[in-house]
Computed example of a mutant assay.
Amino acid sequence: MLRLSTQMCRQGVWALSRLPSSRNALQTVTRKMTQQRAPADWTTSIRTEPKEKEKITALGWFLLLIPATTFGLGCWQVKRKIWKEQLIKDLHEQLNMAAVELPENLADLSHMEYRLVKVRGRFLHDKEMRMGPRSLIRPDGGETQGGLFSQRDAGNGYLIVTPFQLSNRDDIVLINRGWVSRKHVDPETRALAQPQTEVELTAVVRQGEARPQFTPDHKSANMYLYRDLPRMCESSGAAHVFLDAVYDPQAMSGGPIGGQTRVTLRNDHMSYLVTWFSLSAATSFLWYRQIVKRLAF
């Protein structure tokens, strides 16, 4: 019976659909049901908010010390460069100042480097020493090419350092008389330029030198590679005073040529400040890229 009822219902619906009016009514009902259906909501229940900006950690702020420190060192080198240039300028001005009398207390000369002083006395040629090899500093300030390995160069020679007995005093000081070529190193080759009487001259106050790096020991008792003031004074009996004689245009030919004072002050601060500022710029860029922008290489 149930099967019969189902079949009758299907036949009734089929019969109704065959009628034109019934077909239109069925389409109208279907259209209204479709329009009343709520649209599907495909959104999820999770809120999507903009990503919060990541904060810089304590380690990130600590790494900022690297560019900040290198920038500070660059500024410090700028100040050092200005100070060194002014110091070199002052030293050159001292070399052009009027000469003063040698002080009674020779210890005062320790604070007078590069000052011009007047001395009077006589040379003790029997205790003469040599220092070098050295290149010649010409009166115009230029230098000839010469050094330890340029044995055949005409501009290569030695400085003649001679003890000097001061007049009316028992003090003996060391005076760098000047430069001589290799062929005039021996005193016999410049006998006419070895004054035996008292002379008066102007000289520049100098201090001793520390042993330069990689410099070997002195060749002999009267041959020195650098201004080793303690050993020079010990071997000659002179006080710890070293003077460079100034250039004398009336000096005899073949004799020592004065004016061999070098203002030995290194000024490498320009290269230092460029290095520090470059490091500061590079590390600042890396810090901004890695810590702030968090960009990978």
Rank of each mutant, 00 (worst) to 15 (best):
E104R: 12
G146F: 01
G141S: 04
S167H: 10
D170C: 03
V117K: 06
Q207Y: 03
S181Q: 09
R190P: 05
A98I: 08
G157K: 00
A99L: 11
F164H: 05
N105P: 07
E200Q: 15
T189P: 02
G157V: 00
G141N: 06
D90V: 02
P187G: 09
L106W: 13
I175N: 00
T197I: 09
H125Q: 15
M112R: 14
Y114R: 04
F123H: 05
M129F: 12
E188F: 06
I175H: 02
R134F: 02
D126F: 06
L124Y: 06
E104Q: 14
G146W: 02
Y114I: 00
E143G: 01
L109I: 10
V205M: 02
E198W: 13
F164C: 04
L102S: 08
Q207V: 01
G157F: 01
Y158W: 15
R190C: 10
P163N: 04
G157I: 02
D153Q: 10
R182D: 13
F149Q: 11
G141Y: 07
Q165Y: 09
E143F: 04
E188H: 06
L109W: 12
H92T: 07
L166Y: 06
V119L: 13
R177E: 10
A203M: 07
L136I: 11
Q151Y: 11
H92K: 11
G178D: 08
G121Y: 13
Q151I: 07
T202F: 11
G121N: 11
G142E: 05
A193P: 05
N176I: 04
E128I: 05
R169T: 11
K127N: 13
Q165D: 04
R115M: 06
E113S: 08
R115K: 15
L136R: 03
L116S: 06
S110G: 11
M112L: 15
P163I: 03
G146C: 02
R120Q: 14
E198C: 11
Q94S: 10
V180K: 00
Q194R: 15
A107H: 13
F123E: 04
E198K: 14
G178W: 00
P139G: 04
R182F: 08
D90K: 10
G121E: 12
V161Y: 02
L109Y: 13
Y114V: 01
L136P: 01
G142V: 07
A193T: 12
R120E: 15
P163H: 05
V185Y: 05
L174M: 03
I160H: 01
E200M: 14
R122Y: 14
G141M: 02
L91V: 15
Q145A: 08
L102G: 13
F123D: 01
P133R: 00
F149K: 11
H125V: 08
V173N: 07
L109G: 08
L166S: 07
T189R: 05
P187Q: 11
T162N: 04
Q207F: 02
I160F: 00
I172R: 14
E113I: 04
R169W: 12
L95G: 09
M97E: 15
D186A: 01
F149N: 13
K118N: 15
V185H: 02
G146V: 00
L106V: 12
P195R: 10
D90M: 07
R122T: 14
V119I: 15
